[in-house]
Design a protein around this nucleic acid. Structure first.
Lengths: 263, 263
DNA sequence: GCAACTTTGTGCATGCGTTCACAAGGGCGT
DNA sequence: ACGCCCTTGTGAACGCATGCACAAAGTTGC
């Protein structure tokens, strides 16, 4: 389905796989800059980013020749070039729909506000949440989606609502003018051509892990056998978790520290 | 058990890309089962999962021949086969380290508890959170990681702590016997061979979206130019900040978030 | 100023993943 | 029972990504 129309090829031919790694490099570069390291070799940067050095060099070569042979890359200069390529030299206003735990995690995300993105507004349908502030951002009602998008010129929207509500929210975002959507709800969103959707599904990653774990324990009988692998109070778990997503968990968030949120 | 009709020893040879899509198919299949649809063609299932039908058939063919030509696939049977392949016919106890918003979102995740996974315990270092319950799960202190892992036979761990703390937590999980790690912290984790790490990074997906958005608007000048992007202040109306307020966050958190940014 | 050293940038081969197109196989109507 | 029709399963071609290995290019030391 992903036919590439000619207009795509008209733009610079940076492979998608490379684009997906640029943020990784950027993160590693910022870490180096924080430690006041002025220059870095492809080998070092590759290690810091968790990739192969040949791959790193090839990736960077798609942006241009920004290194110095015999020396390496200037950290600040490369940060600028990569940022520019990713379009992070401007601030992108983002609308977060769904002020549940996931939406809050996103709003609290450190790297969010500081480099390239700004929370334009948060949206939630729960009257108890609307009007409150989360991480310094006011929460608006769902009926204000269109107004917020128009007012701030929002092009990117994050959907962190329960699965059943996701498509409706998506439709409204698109109708309002949002052209890039980050979807956390476990459903396949239907969007018109020209709208870009990326999905993040926590359970999918978990299931992939389970597959490998199963394979590993099938081949090698677990030597954890010594430990009594007996659920201790199996009884506790009971009850009511149901819910399709974490979106509406208002009340008792003791919000302590933790913050992992951000991460 | 399982003589695994495995004349197709291909069990070993299932491509990684296929594994990554199986959870997608599973989700679509469950949706069909909920609607009491007994059978489905590759075309329909592919549409529901958001992929190409040829790809779907090739993927499924790696598990075996579970379809009926001229008819399609039996939904329940295929659910069983895919689940078995992913290792979801057993319950995997998972330890969640970091009870921030992200950890809570994970704990509350519907698909988590219902199909194949069980929260063995949540861990947090904040004394205010330890001892409380989140989504029915007791929160333990960080010093109990080893005990929890051994007692429940945990093999999968999710790390939702700030970036600075992630590697230390990872080391402890691995030392305790965890062999599969789902990392939400924006750092590259260093693990010994034999340990499987998958990462989920919210900001990376966002940056990829930004890249495409930038390209789009570079080609087509945005007509949102008219709207003045002037933030309306989000301070008023403080009213109920009963939850999730940034105001309660200890200084340590903010610091951590900033650090996370750096990396 | 020259030679030796270091590191980038890249041509090329290899392997993996996707897609096409069709033969194989099973159900259904007559 | 037979042949038509439908959908699966897969061989084969294609395209993309990865990694190797090396030439190009710049720096450092003498």
């Amino acid at each position: 389905m992903s036919r590439r129309n000619s207009s795509d090829s008209a733009t610079q031919g940076i492979p998608e796989a490379t684009i997906a790694r640029l943020p990784l490099y950027l993160r590693a570069l910022y870490a180096l800059a924080d430690r006041d390291i002025p220059s870095v070799s492809s080998e070092e940067l590759a290690t810091a980013a968790g990739v192969n050095s040949a791959k790193l060099r090839k990736d960077l070569s798609h942006l241009g020749s920004y290194g110095t042979r015999g020396v390496g890359y200037d950290v600040d200069y490369l940060i600028y070039q990569v940022s520019r390529e990713l379009g992070l030299t401007q601030d992108w206003p983002v609308i977060i729909v769904g002020a549940g735990n996931l939406g809050r995690a996103l709003a609290n995300y450190g790297g969010f506000a500081t480099r390239g993105f700004r929370v334009a507004a948060m949206i939630d349908s729960d009257p108890l949440v609307v009007g409150t502030s989360i991480a310094g951002h006011r929460v608006y009602g769902a009926d204000e989606i269109e107004r917020v998008v128009a007012r701030y010129g929002v092009m990117i929207g994050a959907i962190t609502v329960p699965a059943v509500a996701a498509q409706a929210i998506c439709d409204r975002l698109v109708a309002a003018g949002v052209t890039s959507i980050l979807n956390f709800a476990p459903v396949v969103l239907n969007v018109p051509a020209g709208v870009d959707v990326r999905k993040v599904d926590l359970s999918i990653e978990l299931q992939i892990l389970a597959f490998h774990a199963q394979r590993r324990s099938a081949i090698k009988p677990p030597q954890y056998a010594d430990a009594e692998v007996r659920p201790l109070d199996a009884r506790s778990r009971a009850g009511a978790d149901s819910l399709a997503d974490a979106s509406h968990q208002p009340a008792r968030d003791r919000e302590a520290a933790v913050e992992a949120v951000g991460t």
